[in-house]
């Protein structure tokens, strides 16, 4: 399936961004309820054979090139958006291997991985990258292995270490977050980093979600659909940049604007900005502790 990329899109300033009709049709919804609450909507990542957003391990859509450029811009301004603790170096290589294998298998016309033992050649045609490197040798890549590959994928990622009966966020990249901070959460446990979420703790959502995540097995990926709404298609709604996006003239600060009526006419505008959490949950043990 060849994707017609839209490299001139922007997620700030003039907000040059739109979804083609085909992109809206492949969106992994419809919304099947009239109201929503936090819930346990994790499920096995069963591949759709009909195309759409569930056909691949890591979805690539028409915004891929523009989103990768946006990520590079955010990282240039704030390198702290990508941080990994030293003991997670094996998880970094696991992530690189998983994403490269998945992209090259799911989108062979756009990505190619050639391997001769630990000598690998990675070709990313949409971003015009051709990289020879030695698997396991970080000096053979322009960035750390995790940052290198996460710059070539849509959506944010975290690396979680499973120990002490919980998951620790011991690494990640966050340039498209719904107002959470990697710098703040780095090293926290699952319940700590979800601490600010209202209502869901009392419903037992996080206890059950943690149990489920700790049992996700290598080779059996899971997914969870998650969406947020923003007025503009701004991907970088980070606490670090709150003065840039939070206080502007288009800020919705609750109250009457949260009524359905306020949003009703905006659904078409909101949909493009809804951020799909790319829920290829990396197997916590293998992604964090392999070899």
């Amino acid at each position: 399936m060849t994707i017609a990329f839209k490299p001139d899109e922007t997620f700030r300033g003039d907000f040059r961004y739109a979804n083609s009709p085909a992109a809206i049709l492949r969106f992994p919804f419809p919304f099947d309820q009239d109201s929503y609450m936090y819930g346990i909507n994790m499920e096995p990542h069963t591949r759709s054979t009909m195309g759409g957003a569930f056909a691949a391990a890591f979805d690539v859509d028409e915004h891929y090139v523009a989103e990768c450029a946006e990520r590079a811009a955010v990282l240039a301004a704030d390198p702290g958006r990508c941080q990994v603790l030293p003991h997670m170096v094996e998880a970094e290589w696991d992530t690189l291997e998983l994403i490269m294998e998945s992209l090259s298998a799911d989108y062979p016309e756009h990505f190619t991985l050639e391997r001769e033992g630990d000598d690998w050649i990675w070709t990313n045609r949409p971003l015009s990258l051709h990289q020879r490197f030695r698997f396991g040798d970080p000096s053979s890549l322009p960035q750390s292995p995790f940052e290198y590959i996460a710059r070539q994928a849509q959506g944010d990622f975290t690396l979680q270490d499973q120990r002490d009966g919980t998951l620790y966020m011991d690494g990640g990249i966050a340039t498209t977050q719904a107002d959470w901070s990697l710098s703040f959460d780095l090293g926290m446990t699952f319940h700590e980093w979800h601490g600010p979420v209202p209502l869901a703790h009392q419903k037992g959502v996080f206890d059950r979600a943690l149990s489920y995540l700790m049992r996700v097995r290598y080779g059996h990926p899971a997914r969870r659909l998650n969406w947020t709404m923003t007025v503009h298609p701004r991907l970088d709604t980070s606490p670090e940049n709150y003065p840039v996006w939070g206080a502007g003239p288009h800020h919705f600060d609750g109250g009457q604007h949260r009524r359905d009526a306020a949003f009703a006419g905006r659904i078409a505008d909101i949909l493009p900005a809804a951020a799909l959490e790319r829920a290829a949950v990396l197997h916590p043990r293998l992604s964090c502790q392999h070899r």
Partner: peptide, 9 residues
């Protein structure tokens, strides 16, 4: 079924 892991109910 959904999660198939004893979490969602």
């Amino acid at each position: 079924s959904l999660c198939r892991g004893g979490a969602c109910g």
